[in-house]
Design a protein around this nucleic acid. Structure first.
Lengths: 99, 99
DNA sequence: TTGATTGTTCGATAATCATAGAACAACCAA
DNA sequence: TTGGTTGTTCTATGATTATCGAACAATCAA
């Protein structure tokens, strides 16, 4: 399918992480991944066109939040939990717990 | 000078708080207020025109991050520390501690 | 009252961003 | 090989955002 790039977590500025989490659609995606560990794009609970979803996944990937691996025709996404927590402690918990 | 509006903290969605903290200029302002408790606009360490600064202060106020009170010709700003911490635990600490 | 200081508001502009249709590429199953 | 599924990329569009100059309002000091 494609070779996904996953940035070094240390290279990600705080503002970029904040920016990624400033969209309701992307926040939903993060929450879904928290609940399900690993999901293909078409299993994500979003109401947008697939081109739009692809864009959002790119933003989350660039912000260090998710990791994507290819499996057949699907691409499976999960959170970079450990890594992201080390760089931005408490942020994922905030997304998880704050209504 | 003006009657400033400070929203109910409970009415602020997570995304709005994130959005407010996705701009380097606004993050600098929050950090300066963390260090100095209370500052007038013209004491803030930003390199933008005053119209722009006024805009950024409005965004921070709308996001529940700061409180503004008038004193003479100046308006003095401080963080809504307690309140904001209760609503979004750990977020201010993140801004404070994450480079 | 005059002038200086402080910050807001208006209007304009350039940049960024969210959105989606269409075409495409990779893969799998029949 | 043919068709269906999956997701990306391109292109376009409308919305939001950051920026600033200029005009304005409020206050204070001389």
């Amino acid at each position: 399918m494609k070779a996904y790039e996953h940035p070094e977590i240390e290279s990600i500025p705080l503002e970029k992480a904040m920016q990624a989490l400033s969209d309701p659609c992307r926040v939903s995606i993060v929450r879904a991944l928290l609940a399900s560990k690993e999901l293909a794009c078409n299993e994500l609970p979003v109401g947008v066109a697939k081109a739009t979803l692809s864009h959002h996944m790119g933003v989350l990937r660039e912000a260090g939040l998710i990791e994507t691996r290819v499996e057949g025709t699907k691409c499976l996404n999960c959170l970079r939990l450990e890594t992201f927590r080390e760089r931005f402690p408490g942020l994922i918990e905030l997304v998880s717990e704050c209504t």
